[in-house]
Nucleic acid binder design. Structure first.
Lengths: 148, 148
DNA sequence: GGATACTTGCAATCGGATTGCAATTCCCTA
DNA sequence: TAGGGAATTGCAATCCGATTGCAAGTATCC
């Protein structure tokens, strides 16, 4: 399903250091947000993260600000997978040059799957290159769970 | 750029009939909305259509309702291309069985291009099929105009 | 340890989308 | 082709996720 989970498991000090290296203060709310996303096997919504953080008393506005800050700092990636909701996922610090991997969004249940080895045919790549530089591929459809 | 524009050019009576056939009343606002989208070479946003219609005195709420009604009736397709905005495009009545074609969204300028002949490699298709049934492909990146 | 700039919490605000309701319009039928 | 009933519209109010201002709180650097 996902081959990136667990590759980013980091200790608390490592997470704090990553945040400091990115030029931000390692506050509890930020550290927790980044940890949640590094431990998740798929992108989480704004609301998902805010709800987790609210359990430890973090305000929704703070959660939103931190997600945006961490994104601007290059620690997270923010994407919109077609259901009008922002999702965030941690960027693997061990493979900075890794290009964005494709995602699959189930339009029925909203679940998201990260895909590693999906690419276009050479011919398709040529066609799309004539339009512009493709940086992201998104597939949508019905996941196996939702196909009864 | 786009090979679907102009293939759907319809006369006013044809558009009205299409709306009636779909089980809706052919009001001026609906007829105009469908005509605008059938004449457009790329998907238009909620706001685009609402603005066009407002010039003829149609309320924004009516425009939104009609876009949703026409979508539910199967005359339009509603997609979210990653910039948090709904877009609508007319479904070609002459090729009902045509699967959704891929889109390219420029993340810089927001322009959308319809792509006809883009597909995944056989291997990629196999991988994505193991996750679910893919019904839509979306590419994002920087269009040629925006690459300086 | 203390100063300072960054963060947070809270409440207010924002803007796109949606909804309730009365007035209007479309369409079917007689 | 006129009339009735249901669908549709306009307007204003509302909803809801996201954002912002500001004072209080806190992480970091010295």
């Amino acid at each position: 399903m996902n081959d990136r989970a667990n590759t980013m498991l980091s200790t608390f000090p490592e997470i704090q250091q990553a945040i400091r290296d990115a030029g931000l203060r390692a506050t509890p709310a930020r550290t927790a947000a980044l940890r949640i996303l590094r431990e998740s096997s798929s992108p989480l919504t704004h609301a998902d993260v805010a709800q987790s953080l609210s359990k430890m008393g973090v305000d929704k506005a703070t959660a939103f600000r931190n997600l945006n800050d961490l994104t601007d700092a290059g620690l997270l990636r923010r994407t919109e997978l077609g259901d009008h909701v922002w999702r965030f996922e941690a960027i693997d610090p061990d493979s900075q040059d890794e290009t964005n991997h494709p995602h699959f969004l189930c339009v029925d249940c909203g679940s998201v799957t990260c895909l590693a080895d999906v690419q276009l045919t050479a011919n398709s790549r040529r066609k799309s290159d004539s339009v512009g530089e493709v940086t992201e591929i998104l597939l949508r459809g019905h996941c196996n769970q939702c196909r009864e």
